[in-house]
């Protein structure tokens, strides 16, 4: 029982970061039907910003706003440089565009910094643990879960209570109709990118606290987790993305402790396989993807 509770907490801690990443991917998918495989680049950029400022001697708390700001700006910049121009193209075109962005950003860091990883220190409280009734709670996990809840609450407020949120939801619901009704597509899409950048920024802060590493492929793993979580949640659904993130975190923790030796490395593959099976056998269950084309 204690063990299960322990894994529950571990899983939710992990899953919170995935949820933030997935939410950012879902927001973008909602407004422009793009599966953004360049979402991880926001983490990569954040990592280098963090590393750069840290080497200048700044404290971790000073890095947080810088990382958030740079992540949002990068999201906006990528939208401006790449995604804006393929907005009404096929899904195929948009997905490949996002891979193009991935290659360019990665190469820029190889060129400008180095292919080698750069380390910076983690915050001192990172690994502190409190024990409650036999369950070890990492302070980090508690902070992650708390901040994630706050971020989600903020996002819910934004989406439900503001004009921007309403247009965002309208666009996610039916982009063409929303545009016909006068939603300013430029503004909505830019706003969506800033939102996804902010969410990725929060995730980046936590991710980097743990890894303390900057390298050109730093964003690859978080991107993969985010995409997997968003897929579990149905891609366009914001609530689904959060659920997907938490589910992915829990599944990983459960698999790692239960899988026999030698197949732990198959975790991502197994999750991917399950998602593929979901797409094969219950395509109608994944609502937003299969919203029937109007005939």
């Amino acid at each position: 029982m204690t063990e299960l509770l322990q894994q529950l907490v571990d899983g939710i801690g992990r899953g919170s970061i995935y949820a933030l990443l997935a939410l950012g991917i879902a927001v973008i998918f909602g407004v422009m039907h793009l599966v953004n495989f360049a979402h991880g680049e926001l983490i990569t950029v954040s990592a280098y910003v963090g590393y750069g400022l840290f080497t200048l001697g700044l404290h971790w708390w000073a890095l947080v706003p810088a990382i958030l700001a740079s992540s949002m700006l990068t999201a906006l910049g990528i939208e401006f440089a790449a995604f804006r121009w393929v907005r009404n193209s096929s899904d195929f075109t948009m997905v490949l565009t996002s891979f193009g962005v991935h290659f360019v950003v990665q190469a820029l860091f190889i060129m400008g910094v180095s292919a080698n990883r750069r380390a910076f220190a983690r915050p001192s409280w990172l690994f502190e643990t409190v024990s409650v009734g036999g369950v070890n709670l990492e302070v980090y996990d508690l902070v992650v879960i708390g901040v994630t809840l706050l971020t989600l609450a903020g996002t819910v407020w934004l989406v439900r209570r503001t004009m921007f949120g309403m247009t965002l939801r309208a666009a996610a619901d039916d982009f063409e109709a929303a545009r016909l009704m006068g939603v300013r597509s430029n503004r909505v899409i830019r706003g969506a990118f800033v939102l996804s950048g902010a969410l990725a920024g929060v995730a980046a802060v936590f991710w980097l606290m743990r890894t303390g590493q900057a390298d050109p492929t730093a964003g690859l793993t978080p991107m993969l987790k985010g995409v997997l979580a968003a897929l579990i949640g149905g891609l366009g659904s914001l609530g689904g993305a959060v659920v997907g993130g938490l589910a992915l975190g829990l599944v990983e923790v459960l698999l790692i402790s239960r899988l026999p030796d030698g197949v732990v490395g198959l975790t991502d593959g197994m999750v991917f396989l399950c998602i593929a099976l979901l797409f094969v056998f219950r395509p109608q269950g994944i609502v937003t993807i299969r919203r029937a084309e109007r005939v």
């Binding site: 962005v101 290659f103 360019v104 990665q106 190469a107």
Partner: peptide
Amino acid sequence: GLTGIFLGGAMLGFM
């Protein structure tokens, strides 16, 4: 990294 720029740039440009 130059080849990476070319590969990514070609994908972006053509898309």
